[in-house]
């Protein structure tokens, strides 16, 4: 596949459906970090988030023919990731067992975002980031999903409405209430 041509996501999945595996690689490269951001903010666990993103992309591979071009590809892939993340959270809630082995099994190297600011700013930034993550985790799942999709992934209201499968008005209302609740939580943590 020539790299000079910029294909849309929908064109890439169409090519992949026809057997072009390079198109799949391109989709993986486009979506892996976006999905990672979404899922990590959702489940608050790097390893679990990465496993979910892998499962999502694997599902795209195995279920490629299930995609029909009636919706945007991003809507489809975010729906898969969101459903897998919710399922995983439900499973964890049911188990409620702390797996201590997880604390030492990390042999992966995570890329920490490059930061040119000095150490003081970085520490402050990390602290703020932690507060933010904690505040996001305090939100109920249906608020958490929409606020991540809107304010971190910057998706449109229409797209979020398709992903979470609720009417547009409900999405707007949920985002507004989620933001208010997030604001309140951040105030408490500071």
């Amino acid at each position: 596949m020539p790299e000079a041509i910029q294909y849309t996501d929908e064109e890439l999945i169409a090519r992949f459906q026809e057997g072009d595996e390079q198109a799949y690689i391109e989709l993986v490269n486009r979506y892996r970090n976006r999905l990672m951001t979404f899922v990590y903010r959702f489940v608050n666990d790097f390893e679990l988030a990465e496993d979910i993103v892998q499962d999502t992309l694997l599902k795209v591979y195995t279920h490629r023919h299930f995609y029909k071009e009636i919706a945007k590809f991003s809507t489809w892939i975010y729906t898969i990731a969101g459903n897998l993340a919710k399922t995983e959270l439900r499973k964890r809630k049911r188990r409620k067992v702390t797996n201590l082995s997880q604390m030492s099994r990390d042999d992966r190297v995570y890329e920490i975002p490059a930061d040119d600011a000095d150490t003081g700013d970085r520490v402050q930034g990390q602290f703020a980031e932690k507060q933010l993550q904690k505040a996001i985790q305090s939100l109920p799942l249906h608020f958490r999903t929409v606020v991540i999709l809107r304010d971190l992934q910057e998706l449109s209201y229409e797209e979020i409405s398709n992903i979470v499968n609720v009417p547009l008005g409900t999405v707007k209302s949920r985002i507004n209430r989620a933001r208010l609740q997030l604001q309140k939580a951040l105030k408490e943590y500071r």
């Binding site: 690689i25 993986v28 490269n29 892996r32 970090n33 976006r34 990672m36 951001t37 990590y40 903010r41 790097f46 988030a49 990465e50 993103v53 892998q54 992966r108 190297v109 995570y110 890329e111 975002p113 980031e129 933010l132 304010d151 971190l152 910057e154």
Partner: peptide
């Protein structure tokens, strides 16, 4: 929120 850097997958993800 908008300024949050993206979370990147680990090396060897692909």
């Amino acid at each position: 929120l908008h300024r949050q850097p993206p979370v990147r997958v680990s090396a060897g993800f692909n």
